[in-house]
Nucleic acid binder design. Structure first.
Lengths: 345, 345
DNA sequence: CTGAAAGCGCTTACAG
DNA sequence: CTGAAAGCGCTTACAG
């Protein structure tokens, strides 16, 4: 069923109920309608009621484009992440969304798929919405992107990782330290042949940072550091399972594997179970993220817990503070991480 | 570090490079700039080059608000879903996003949290962006919402479920039939005391439809239909595990449980493993969705596979067809489902 | 192929 | 408390 009501609807040239229509119906000027709707305290109760009724009767929906253009301000916040397949980003987005929505801001989602060139295109397109501020995953961007954002002059939060050199504000954690922390745990437990399995490490430089931290810790302990397995496909439990088997075949001396994330690690545990490989006796398994699934598998997964939801909320909160002109100090926040030692190591 | 460059940046009254600025720099009229950027074939190569260079030098980003207002058309598509915690919606969104982005449309995300009143608020707010079309999860809405959308006059696709009474277009599957299909499978396998476990069934009426279909099939087979466990919290594997134990305690005669989704069912399998409850010998377990994790757990999960990603792509595709004025027949598509019989039943 | 004029729907100072 | 005027940055016919 198509619908052809009220106004002239030529499918493209469709124009809906406007401020002016409401004004006519309420018998006031357009400007009074605008005020009655946006700053009701400035309008007499009587007229306000008339306007509100007229708006309701007409099914008036304010045109945000016009409002934004006239006021040179919007309630749009682009949020640009490298992936949606990873639950981690979903949780961050949920934290952000909750805060934004509470204050009447609309999230606009961009997905770079770990491609900095796509990020550049997205940033440039989204700035065309004259957003009030922006949230961007990561601290690494093309020079062009950095320049664009630096010259933009509105609040910006870079999230996920913590480091120097942010453009405006930064809320994240050190992936290098997280990697080192897990490696030290494995070393303390007595493992001596520790491998690392990651995916898409060329583009996912945060996973690479965890790997680097891990390698650094191994080196410090005088252990071999050449057991790094880098896979091309996106992380899934199934891939983790296959990677476990492949790694054990290629390097039977391995006694522990640190997976770049919990998706892979959980898959490895499930695969080990299928193949009757004792974990952690034959091979210890560790992950990164702290997904709840890790507590349900047997053995339960040792992992590093990152405060994703909280990071999202915090990023949105400092952004909105800056947007409303309030001071934000410090400009950078390390949300940290914690090591959850469970049964798999 | 804050940035204060170029233009006057009073943080709110900030205005950026405009068409006019580019025109001045290129030594042409604004209208030529607009054309050079939007319909380059209408402009002489020489001027076009001048314009493009000026735009690049100035870092010009077109103001979409102004463009939208002037042309009465946007490239915005709101996508409204009931939840982001559920991977299912993420996959649908990915499918949609891929198609939209390819055609230069921007997805605007709304999350109702299974609350029809919130849906109404969101729809009304998002229509203010004068979107080119809309994608909305579900066929049930408040009367107010239906009226608003029916009067709106632009293309709309309702997704996830298939049924009569869509407002404009519909791409989905029958949850009632899916539920019945799984129940019949369990009956064929010889199970006679079959329970159903679902969460938030008051609001998640698609889960309720699966339950209804399941109950109908049991009734047809002359089996008891009173083993329905409705939980209040959102679905997680952990909750599924707890629900399994609770159900077996309350109704020890149960020999099979159909979980409303794979999140719950996978958790139940993992929990059974921990508690050494043989699956399917003591209790058969089935799910709904076809998440890949179901193939990794032991025993592998019997489930119903829904084509989420494909549904998302299809919905976006028919929407864009309608937006560009092409005919779409039929207006409703049943994407179907398939029963994946694995080890857990 | 190029430009002057009008207008999209709203808000912002500015007067009353 | 209320309204007339100007303008936000762009595009759309309409003339040349």
């Amino acid at each position: 069923m198509t619908n052809d009501d009220s106004t002239d609807d030529s499918s493209q040239g469709y124009r809906s109920v406007t401020l002016k229509n409401v004004a006519e119906r309420a018998g006031v000027s357009p400007i009074t309608v605008s005020r009655a709707l946006n700053r009701p305290e400035l309008v007499s109760p009587k007229r306000r009621a008339r306007v509100e009724q007229a708006a309701r009767e007409l099914g008036y929906v304010p045109n945000r484009m016009a409002g934004a253009l006239a006021s040179a301000r919007t309630h749009v916040i682009p949020v640009i992440v490298p992936s949606l397949s990873n639950v981690v980003f979903i949780e961050v987005i949920q934290g952000i969304q909750e805060v934004l929505e509470h204050d009447g801001y609309q999230l606009m989602l961009g997905n770079t798929e770990y491609d900095l060139q796509r990020e550049q295109t997205l940033v440039s397109a989204l700035l065309g919405w004259t957003p009030a501020g922006t949230i961007l995953a990561g601290l690494r961007h093309l020079d062009e992107t950095r320049a664009l954002l630096a010259g933009w002059g509105r609040p910006l939060v870079e999230i996920m990782e913590y480091g120097q050199d942010c453009i405006d504000m930064n809320v994240g954690l050190s992936h290098y330290q997280a990697g080192a922390s897990m490696a030290r745990h494995l070393i303390e437990r007595g493992y001596r042949h520790i491998g690392f399995v990651g995916t898409q490490m060329t583009n996912d430089y945060r996973a690479r940072q965890r790997c680097d931290g891990h390698l650094h810790a191994l080196e410090e302990a005088g252990l071999a550091t050449h057991h790094v397995f880098a896979l091309a496909a996106p992380s899934t439990p199934a891939l983790g399972g296959r990677a476990l088997l492949a790694a054990l075949q290629q390097a039977p001396e391995l006694d522990a594997i640190f997976f770049a994330n919990d998706d892979l690690a959980v898959g490895a545990i499930l695969q080990a179970q299928r193949n009757a490989i004792p974990v952690p006796e034959r091979i210890a398994i560790a992950g990164f993220n702290g997904l709840s699934l890790g507590e349900l598998v047997t053995p339960q997964l040792t992992t590093i817990v990152s405060p994703r939801y909280r990071m999202g909320k915090m990023a949105a909160t400092v952004l909105l503070r800056r947007i409303s002109g309030l001071p934000v100090t410090p400009r950078t926040v390390d949300v940290g991480f914690s090591l959850a030692v469970r049964e798999s190591t």
